[in-house]
Nucleic acid binder design. Structure first.
Lengths: 376, 376
DNA sequence: TTTAGCACTCGGGAGCAGCGAGTGCTAAAT
DNA sequence: ATTTAGCACTCGCTGCTCCCGAGTGCTAAA
C-alpha cells in the first residue's frame, strides 16, 4: 500500500509545503528535486496518498497540501530530526545560565529563548507542586498590618505573597508562629495540608484567637498557592509573521483564546495526564525509509508530543500545532514546555529546539541542585 | 476665523468619525444630526477647517477625516468628558479591592481592568523608587547555596529575588548580616546607596572576606533592583479588534515595537519627565462652545496627557494615540498609567476610564496606607 | 452669507477574459 | 504491471472595463 517511494513523496511534499506555504504540484516537485520519475507518476502516487487521507487539495485542480493525518504520519514515522548547530546550543545554554543573574526565573527564560529561537509562541508551565513537600515557611512583617509570607518547597522552589494581617501583631509573634507552623508541617505533602492541619500546628501561639485565625488562613492560602501551576507565555508578537494568521478573524479568535491563559494551561495539563497513561502504546519507532537517516537521537532525545489541527479542541486553534515536551525536576515533579504555531511548521527544526531547551533547562536545574546540595 | 459653528462642526465630525470609522461627508452630517444648515454650508466650513489643517481628505473627493492637529484641538479645547456610570465605577473599584486577595499586585490589576474596560492596550509603570528609602532588608537561606533577599521600601513596597550565595554560610550569619545592613542603611535614599555603603554597613560580619563580598554584591543588586521601574502590559488581544490594525504590516510593526518593552517604558518615562517641566504652560482651559457643557470635572479630575500620531516617535506607533495619567504614591513617587490605541478612539470614554482607574488606584493605595499605619 | 444646482472625482464592486499551474484519464511504451 | 506522454478540463488569480454612489468644488441665485 504505502511503499518507500510514497513515503518519501509524502515527506518531501510536506517539507516543500512547509517551506513555501504553497500547495505543491507534481511538476514543480519533480524539477525541484530532480526526480528521475515523471510528473505523471508522481500524480498517480499523489492521488493514492490523497485517497489514503494524507493529502488534500485546496480546490479541484490545485496542488496538494498535507492533511492532519499527513502531518501525523510525518511526525510519527517520517521525520528526521536535525541536530542544532553548536552556536545555537551554546547560545541557549548561556541564555539560561544568565537566568540566575536576572530577576526572571529559569522557567521564564526558557520560554523566552524558545520563542526567540523558533519564532513561534512558547508557553512553559511550572509543575504542580501538590505532591511536593513543605520545607520552610516564614512570615515577615513589612509594616503594621502587612506581611510577606514566604513558602519554600522541598525542591527549593520559593513562592511568596504579600498579605494583610491584623495590625497589632508583633514581629516576634509572627516569627514564632511561622516556626511553629514550619515545625508542624515540615516534610508534609502540600496536598495533605489543610486549614485544620495549619491551625493544629500553630497551637500555643500567643496571638489571640480571632486575629490568629486571619493569619493562619493567609498562611494556609500561601501554602496552597505555592502548589499551583504557573505559566509563562512568550512571543505573541511572532503571530503575524506567519501567513496563516493574516486572516484577521482567525488571528483574533486565536488571541482571544490565548488570552484566557488558564483555559490553555488547564488544557495542556489535562493532556499531560492523559498522555502519561497511554505512554506505553505510543513508543514511536522511526522506521527509516532512506539512507539519509544517519542521525537518530532516539536514545538521549526527550519524548515530545505533537498535537495537530483538529486534535486540538480549543476555539480558534484548530489549525495550529502544539509541540510539547515534559521536563522533570527531581523525581515526581514535571512541567511542560509548549510551542504553538500553525500546522505548517518546520518540525525538524522546532522539535530539535524544544527538545534542546528541555535538556538545557533540566541540566540547569540539576546544576543548581548540585551546587546547593554540596555533596553528589 | 474659528467661529462657534466651526468648532461644533469639528467636534461633531471627529465624534462621528470615531464612531463609524468612515470619512464623514457633508450630506450625511446634516441628516444624521438634523442640522438646520445645508450641506453646502457645511462643505464651505469643512473646506475652511481643512485649510486650517484640522481635517484631511483620504482622496480628492472623499469625506473628511480628522488630522493630528484636529484631534489635538479636540482634546485640548472641544472635548466634553462624560462621567462613568455608577456600575462601571463600582466594578473598577471592586476589581482593585480584590487585588489584595490574589497574588497579583494592585498595579497589575489596574492595568488589567483598564484594558478590559476600554478594550485597548494598557500599560502601567510603577514609580522609580530611587528617591525612596530603605526600610528593611532580609536574607533568608532557602537551602545551602541559595537565598531569598527581601527588600522593603519606605512606602511598603516589597521586592525580592532569589540569589546564589556561597554554600557554607549559616542561616544565623545571614540574619546577622542582613540586620547589620539594615541598621546601616535604614532611611537612606536608594539612589544614595552604593556597593561601598553596603560594604561599610556590613563591617563586623563573621563571614570570611571573599564569601562575604559575594553576598554583599547580591544584596547591593537587590537594593538597586528594588528601585527599578516595572511595567505591566495588558490587552494585546484587543489589537485586532480595531480596523486600523487590520493592515498586517502595520500590526506587525506595532507588536514588534511593543515587544521591546523597555523601549516603550523608557519612552514613557522620559515623557513624564519632560511633561513635568512644561507643566505650568499647559494649563488646559476647556472653553465651552455650546451649552451641553454642563458637566465639567476640572476640579477633581487628575491631569491627563494625550499624544497623537506623529507626536509619538516609536516605530509603528505613529498613527496611534497614547493617553497617559500620572498616579502618585505618597509624596515624591509617581508612576504612569497609559492607554494605547489607534488615533481614532472614543476619547470621551477612554479618558474618563483612565482617569477613574487612576483615582481608584490612588484611593486603594491610600486605603492600604491608612490600614497599615493605624493612626490617621 | 447661505443655498441650490451641477459637473467632476475617485474608490470599490461586478462582470468578464485570459493565463497558468494544476489535475485526471486514457492509451501507448517499457 | 508500471510508467509515461498527451490532452482536455478546472479553477484561482490578475487585470480590464464599466458603473454606481457618496463626496467634492464652484457658480450663481436667494
Amino acid at each position: 500500500m504505502m511503499d518507500e517511494r510514497k513515503k518519501w513523496l509524502l515527506k518531501t511534499i510536506i517539507e516543500d509545503y512547509v517551506e513555501t506555504a504553497e500547495p505543491v504540484g507534481s511538476k514543480v516537485l519533480t524539477t525541484r528535486h530532480k526526480l528521475d520519475i515523471s510528473p505523471a507518476t508522481v500524480r498517480n502516487d499523489m492521488a493514492d496518498l490523497e485517497e489514503m487521507g494524507y493529502l488534500e487539495k485546496t480546490h479541484a485542480s490545485s496542488g496538494r497540501v498535507p492533511s492532519d493525518k499527513g502531518y501525523r504520519a510525518y511526525i510519527d514515522n517520517l521525520i528526521v530530526l536535525e541536530p542544532l548547530s553548536k552556536e545555537i546550543k551554546d547560545y541557549i545554554i548561556s541564555f539560561l545560565s544568565d537566568a540566575m543573574m536576572e530577576a526572571k526565573s529559569l522557567i521564564e527564560q526558557a520560554a523566552a529563548v524558545l520563542s526567540e529561537q523558533s519564532n513561534y509562541i512558547s508557553l512553559v508551565l511550572t509543575p504542580r507542586y501538590g505532591s511536593s513537600s513543605l520545607r520552610q515557611i516564614k512570615i515577615l512583617q513589612i509594616e503594621p498590618g502587612r506581611a510577606l509570607i514566604v513558602v519554600v518547597l522541598s525542591e527549593g522552589i520559593v513562592k511568596d505573597r504579600v498579605v494583610r494581617i491584623p495590625n497589632i501583631i508583633s514581629d516576634q509573634q509572627l516569627v514564632e508562629l511561622a516556626s511553629a507552623i514550619e515545625r508542624g508541617l515540615q516534610g508534609k505533602r502540600l496536598d495533605d495540608i489543610t486549614l485544620v492541619t495549619v491551625t493544629a500546628a500553630a497551637d500555643g501561639s500567643t496571638i489571640p484567637e480571632p486575629l490568629l485565625n486571619q493569619v493562619l488562613y493567609e498562611a494556609y492560602v500561601s501554602i496552597k498557592q505555592a502548589g499551583h501551576l504557573d505559566m509563562y507565555l512568550q512571543g505573541i508578537h511572532t503571530l503575524l509573521d506567519h501567513p496563516e494568521f493574516h486572516d484577521i478573524e482567525k488571528a483574533q479568535r486565536f488571541l482571544t483564546t490565548l488570552h484566557k491563559e488558564h483555559v490553555v494551561a488547564a488544557y495542556l495539563d489535562e493532556w499531560q495526564a492523559q498522555e502519561r497513561e497511554n505512554y506505553q502504546d505510543n513508543v514511536a519507532i522511526n522506521f527509516s525509509d532512506d539512507n539519509r537517516t544517519e542521525s537518530k537521537h532516539t536514545a538521549d532525545r526527550p519524548a515530545f508530543m505533537v498535537r495537530i489541527g483538529q486534535e486540538i479542541d480549543l476555539d480558534g486553534m484548530d489549525d495550529c500545532s502544539f509541540i510539547t515536551t515534559t521536563y522533570r525536576i527531581g523525581g515526581e515533579l514535571s512541567g511542560q514546555i509548549c510551542l504553538i504555531g500553525p500546522r505548517r511548521m518546520p518540525y525538524t527544526r522546532t522539535i530539535s529546539q524544544i527538545n534542546f531547551v528541555n535538556r538545557a533547562l533540566t541540566e540547569q536545574m540539576k546544576a543548581r541542585a548540585r551546587y546547593c546540595k554540596t555533596d553528589e
